[in-house]
Design a protein around this nucleic acid. Sequence first.
DNA 1: ACCCAGGGTCATA
DNA 2: TATGACCATGGG
Length: 216
Amino acid sequence: MPIKSIFNILFKVYGKQNWWPGETPFEIMVGAILTQNTSWNNVEKAIDNLVFHDCLDAEKIIRIHEDQLAVLLKPSGYFNLKTKRIKNYCRWYLDQGGYHCLAARDTGQLRIDLLSINGIGPETADDIMLYAFERPVFVIDAYTRRLFSRLGLVDGTASYEQIRKLFEGKLGEDVALYNEFHALIVRHAKLVCKKQPECHQCCLVKKCDYAIENAK
DNA sequence: ACCCAGGGTCATA
DNA sequence: TATGACCATGGG
């Protein structure tokens, strides 16, 4: 059962996801950092705080005091840590000349540069690569690992890079496909009942799992 | 009263 | 290289 078939099933069941849930590239970058090990619901509250205080902007984030920024980021959890990471990222972002300078950079180099920033790991970097810079980089998260190792399509112990290369090799360079696929994986995973994986209360999950089983 | 979330870093062995 | 501690809020 090819990886691409899973996409077709998920898309048929859930439809278009319209990711990333943020309008500007900068908002996407901030959201990618804030959502580290955190539910998107909490991240939205922090982003709303930034918007309300007119602080969703790299220069303003550089200027605002750490204590004050931490208050705005509080709902997203790990707020002291994320305050430093967001400030650190904005410092780098402005140093590099902002979006247009970065967008002119080669895809491989841009990813290496992002990964060199303290607080930006592989998944956060790839969220930014795919959704803010629209580069053909497949995002691997815990959901992707869980679902595809359960399906027997991925070795659960494989490294992040190994899994990413597997997906990119099978799917080909396709930004729109990567965008939709990762969003669908998250959408599906969120509807799975965590306490009882066998629970069939969520009809969408049931429908999707049924479709996947059938297609085997 | 638990459990976990769209991770990442740093200190150990 | 491979674990473990740590970061912290809000919803189920």
